Deep mutational scan, measured.
Amino acid sequence: MGFKLLSKLLVYLTASIMAIASPLAFSVDSSGEYPTVSEIPVGEVRLYQIADGVWSHIATQSFDGAVYPSNGLIVRDGDELLLIDTAWGAKNTAALLAEIEKQIGLPVTRAVSTHFHDDRVGGVDVLRAAGVATYASPSTRRLAEVEGNEIPTHSLEGLSSSGDAVRFGPVELFYPGAAHSTDNLIVYVPSASVLYGGCAIYELSRTSAGNVADADLAEWPTSIERIQQHYPEAQFVIPGHGLPGGLDLLKHTTNVVKAHTNRSVVE
Score class of each variant (00 low, 15 high):
M1G: 06
F3E: 09
F3Q: 05
L5M: 04
L5R: 13
K8L: 14
K8S: 05
T14M: 15
T14V: 13
I17L: 04
S22Q: 04
V28H: 15
S31G: 10
T36S: 06
S38W: 06
E39T: 09
I40F: 02
I40C: 10
P41R: 07
P41D: 10
E44W: 11
V45P: 14
L47D: 00
A51W: 10
D52H: 03
G53Q: 08
S56R: 10
S56D: 04
I58R: 07
A59Y: 14
S62D: 08
G65V: 11
G65K: 11
A66R: 12
V67R: 11
Y68R: 10
P69K: 03
I74A: 12
V75F: 04
L81T: 07
I84L: 06
D85P: 00
T86C: 12
N92S: 09
L96M: 13
L97Q: 02
A98G: 04
E99A: 14
E101D: 04
K102G: 09
Q103G: 09
Q103M: 03
T109P: 11
T114F: 00
H115Q: 01
F116P: 02
H117E: 00
R120M: 07
R120V: 06
D125F: 08
V126K: 15
A130M: 13
A130Y: 06
G131A: 11
V132L: 10
T134W: 05
P138G: 14
P138Y: 14
T140E: 01
T140Y: 02
T140H: 01
T140Q: 02
R141N: 15
R141V: 11
E150P: 15
T153Y: 15
T153N: 02
L156G: 01
L156H: 04
G158Q: 08
S160A: 11
S160I: 05
S161G: 11
D164C: 08
D164K: 04
L173S: 01
L173Y: 01
G177C: 00
T182G: 08
D183G: 05
N184R: 01
I186Q: 02
Y188A: 13
S193Q: 07
L195F: 11
Y196A: 14
G197L: 04
A200I: 14
A200V: 06
A200C: 11
A200N: 02
Y202F: 04
Y202M: 02
E203V: 02
L204Y: 15
R206S: 09
S208T: 12
S208F: 05
A209K: 06
G210D: 09
A215F: 05
A218R: 10
R226A: 10
A234Q: 05
Q235A: 04
Q235I: 01
Q235G: 07
V237N: 01
V237Y: 07
P244M: 06
D248K: 14
D248V: 07
L249R: 01
K251L: 03
H252T: 14
H252V: 07
T253P: 02
V257N: 12
N262Q: 03
R263Y: 02
V266T: 12
V266D: 03
